[in-house]
């Protein structure tokens, strides 16, 4: 099950290193994620610091926090969380991502527990986390409600989940599918299915039905002038992020 790095031969390691280099090249295949990452991290770090009373200016502000990164990919969020001092588990349903993320974490001299598993399986195993990162995943799952219930089960009472996804409206269709997939070729065609996009109100309703308390929501807005992303509390028309909390 766990495609651990120490079971593979040197040629395989070299292959994973090449894939890791691809994941982590800010100008490469995952450029849109890299461009968005400082903005995502701004929101994530601020919410975690706020919930757990941590000083982001100090060393290892997230020390002692157990964080789960669902859909960790190459580790673009897991590594920053580990660098800020958290104990991080990175989970990905795609087995191929695990050794790639492991190779890169070693290069970065970080200890991260990467696992080929799902939120549902972790919940079943009784794992519990102070923070669950659920970024750009919910629009890809088959049953969002069942998935969010698993996410709630993964939280310690009072723990928070950060969940980002894409709004469903004509603008988001133009921006994310026509723009990002067909025009800019930032993402492979077919990355997103528009009918799986969720409006912020729908997501809040889903969260409540899953037993979570929605607390905050913000938009990620792309500014073509500065060619970068920023947070907006008003414009949630395309990409947006939410914070919710497990009661208790």
């Amino acid at each position: 099950m766990n495609a651990a790095i120490n079971t593979v031969d040197p040629a395989e390691v070299a292959k994973f290193e090449a894939m890791a280099a691809e994941w982590w090249d800010p100008a490469g295949k995952f450029k849109p994620l890299h461009m968005m990452n400082p903005c995502r991290l701004d929101y994530i770090t601020a919410q975690i610091a706020d919930r757990y009373g941590r000083d982001l200016g100090g060393p290892l502000p997230f020390k002692g926090l157990r964080i789960l990164d669902i859909g960790c990919g190459g580790g673009l969020l897991s590594e920053p969380m580990a660098r800020l001092g958290a104990d991080v588990i990175g989970a990905d349903a795609a087995a191929g991502n695990i050794p790639v993320a492991q190779v890169h974490a070693k290069q970065s001299e970080l200890e991260i527990d990467y696992r080929h598993t799902t939120a549902e399986a972790l919940a079943e195993a009784g794992e519990a986390f102070d923070v669950v990162l659920n970024m750009e995943v919910v629009e890809h799952v088959a049953d969002p409600l069942a998935y969010l219930v698993a996410c709630r089960q993964l939280l310690t009472p009072g723990g928070i989940m950060l969940c980002s996804t894409i709004n469903r409206n004509p603008k988001s269709y133009l921006m994310t599918i026509v723009g990002a997939e067909y025009v800019m070729r930032w993402l492979p065609v077919g990355t997103h299915e528009w009918d799986k996009f969720i409006t912020p109100d729908e997501l809040f309703d889903l969260m409540r039905n899953a037993g979570l308390d929605p607390m905050d929501r913000n938009g990620f807005v792309f500014n073509p002038l500065s060619w970068g992303w920023s947070l907006s509390d008003r414009d949630l028309s395309v990409n947006y992020v939410t914070t919710s909390r497990r009661p208790g």
């Binding site: 400082p38 701004d42 590594e79 969380m81």
Partner: peptide, 21 residues
């Protein structure tokens, strides 16, 4: 400094790209 505060690797992340832009 921003990259560091976000837990990023400042030498390979978008920090250098941002400086450049």
């Amino acid at each position: 400094k921003r990259a560091i505060s976000l837990g990023q690797d400042f030498a390979t992340s978008t920090a250098l790209q941002q400086y450049s832009t």
